[in-house]
Amino acid sequence: MTESLLQRDKNDAAVEFSRPLRLSVTEDLRGFLAEKIGHATLFSITFLSVLAVMAIFYFVIQESVPFIFKGSFGESIGRLTEFLTRTGWYPQSHDNPEYGALSIIVGSLYVTLGALVVAVPVGVLAAVFLSDIAPFSLRQICKPIIEILAAIPSVAYGVFAVMIVAPWMQNTLGFTTGTNALNASLILSIMALPTIISVAEDALSAVGREVREASYGLGATRAETMLKVVIPASHSGIVAAIILGMMRAIGETMVVWMASGNASRIPSPWWDLSQSVRTLTATIAGELGEVPKNTDHFHVLFMIALLLLLFTFGLNMVSEFFMARFKKKSRGL
């Protein structure tokens, strides 16, 4: 039996080595070309997506620049200052249009920060629970459910905000309007949760069992282990999770359009979230379809888009920075 096995082995080996050894390009042109073509294809596909991002930047800038740079230098500065610091938003006015976007910028910040106030503590604590406290079986149930939250279309959240949360706020809490900053914040926070939970949970799990064992082995309780070892070791990952959640909240359109009330004014007093606000995203979505092309109104909407783009771009850079630091740290550099 062993002999026959040996025999077969020998034959296999013979087949193996009967293939000619081709090392230079000229001898194996097909293989050489196949590799080059594959490389080029993958490269160009990747490059296309980079190109798409750059094209978006280009067109947004191209369409927003005419709003600012019109007339003298002083006038340009004046228009930019009006855009950033004035609250009057009357772009459709015939005789005296005003393009002060401050109240809209503030509205966006309100709903975003409001969402974060809820989503960050809940999201991070849920991540801690999932990574370290929940029994395995419960985690297996919870994770998919949380991921489903991310898969629900935003318009469905909007319906929920308008049909359920808004009447509840009006009737039970006695707000004058049900569609307000608080409503939008709450719904946005639910939408940001899956991002925050799953990224933060990854960061916490990446800390590894060895480190937890080391801490328990020195007589630490679970709370001490979490607070003094696991969370400090993964804090850059947790910050990245929070920033990703924030990007989700600031870029969300449909829900805030439906739930925020769309009044372009800064709440007064400033802390009263039961008043309606309007966000950058909802302004673009609501007005771009009805505005004549190449008017000031048209260009100012692209200004808003540029502002949003810069905002998310900046946040993305910050989160990349923290992610990179997290990776570096977990490799011990």
């Binding site: 060895e210 480190v211 064992e213 801490s215 082995g217 070892v229 400090p232």
Partner: peptide, 29 residues
């Protein structure tokens, strides 16, 4: 368990220092 583990220390198969300074690693316990 806290007392037990302070009295019965453990060194693991793979070195598992905390991502802290040498000083803080030792003063942790």
């Amino acid at each position: 368990l806290v007392n037990l583990r302070q009295q019965v220390g453990m060194v693991f198969q793979r070195p598992n220092p905390f991502a802290k300074s040498i000083y803080d690693n030792i003063t942790y316990g």
